[in-house]
Amino acid sequence: MKSLKKQRRIQIIALAAVALTVSTVLIGYAMRDGINFFRAPSQIMAEPPGPNEVFRIGGLVAEGSLVRGEGASIRFEVTDGGASVPVVFTGVLPDLFEENQGMVGTGQYINGVFEASEILAKHDETYMPSEVVDALKEQGVYQDPET
């Protein structure tokens, strides 16, 4: 009788492990399109992503690169001090978007141009996403606004 209880306990533990594994795989599969990885311009130039990969790019809007096209089309370059990536965006830019300011964009890198579907700008005088700060520090470009 004791071996029957032990066998039942082992079956329950094995079933729970299988259920946990299956649920983890299903959650990962469901989130595969919802996860956007961050890349700095230097990383994109070193290893260009595939045209179907959606990711985030961040850095500073390069001075003198902002060009407004026909309609709501905007072209500019984003830089981290080491490299620049051309960006094209169709839509309304955030109010705080301007040259020499931090930005993060979501989109795809197609034929050497980042086609943004969403643009985010800093929300106050000192804010910059931590990923952008880290990338700028690696390039030796970042200056702490509090100093």
Results as ranks from 00 to 15, higher is better:
107 G>N: 10
93 L>G: 03
83 A>S: 05
46 A>L: 12
46 A>W: 10
142 Y>I: 01
130 S>N: 12
132 V>C: 05
103 M>H: 04
105 G>H: 10
139 Q>S: 08
47 E>K: 15
55 F>I: 10
103 M>R: 01
128 M>Q: 05
124 D>G: 08
102 G>E: 06
69 G>C: 02
131 E>Q: 14
114 F>H: 04
20 L>D: 11
27 I>F: 00
79 T>A: 00
79 T>D: 00
86 P>N: 10
94 P>F: 02
9 R>N: 11
114 F>A: 02
85 V>D: 02
118 E>H: 13
81 G>A: 01
3 S>K: 13
36 N>A: 09
29 Y>G: 13
23 S>K: 04
21 T>E: 07
39 R>S: 11
67 V>N: 10
99 E>S: 02
42 S>Q: 00
141 V>D: 03
114 F>P: 05
68 R>K: 12
93 L>A: 01
49 P>F: 01
44 I>T: 08
22 V>Q: 03
36 N>H: 09
78 V>M: 06
32 R>E: 13
1 M>F: 13
13 I>H: 00
79 T>F: 03
41 P>G: 06
73 S>L: 12
25 V>Y: 12
73 S>H: 09
66 L>R: 05
72 A>R: 14
139 Q>R: 14
87 V>D: 01
129 P>N: 12
121 A>I: 06
14 A>M: 08
3 S>N: 10
65 S>T: 01
34 G>M: 07
75 R>L: 11
94 P>D: 05
64 G>R: 15
54 V>A: 15
77 E>Q: 10
88 V>A: 13
26 L>N: 06
3 S>R: 10
30 A>S: 09
56 R>T: 11
130 S>H: 08
7 Q>E: 14
61 V>D: 00
146 E>F: 09
110 I>T: 15
117 S>H: 04
120 L>Q: 15
78 V>E: 02
5 K>S: 11
105 G>S: 14
47 E>S: 10
17 A>F: 02
59 G>Q: 02
35 I>C: 09
53 E>G: 05
98 E>F: 00
66 L>T: 08
49 P>I: 01
147 T>I: 13
109 Y>Q: 15
12 I>S: 05
129 P>E: 12
89 F>K: 07
124 D>H: 07
122 K>S: 15
34 G>S: 09
44 I>M: 05
32 R>Q: 15
120 L>F: 10
141 V>P: 02
133 V>I: 13
95 D>I: 03
64 G>D: 14
23 S>I: 07
42 S>K: 04
127 Y>A: 06
41 P>K: 08
71 G>C: 15
73 S>I: 11
90 T>H: 07
107 G>H: 05
84 S>Q: 04
8 R>L: 08
80 D>V: 01
92 V>W: 11
55 F>Y: 07
98 E>N: 00
58 G>A: 06
89 F>L: 13
113 V>G: 07
113 V>Q: 10
109 Y>D: 15
31 M>F: 14
94 P>S: 06
18 V>C: 11
1 M>A: 10
58 G>L: 06
87 V>K: 02
2 K>G: 13
86 P>A: 04
52 N>A: 12
64 G>Q: 09
74 I>M: 02
109 Y>H: 15
135 A>T: 01
117 S>L: 11
28 G>R: 11
71 G>A: 15
53 E>S: 09
140 G>H: 00
146 E>A: 03
26 L>E: 05
139 Q>H: 03
50 G>R: 09
15 L>A: 11
22 V>L: 11
16 A>M: 14
87 V>E: 01
31 M>N: 14
115 E>P: 07
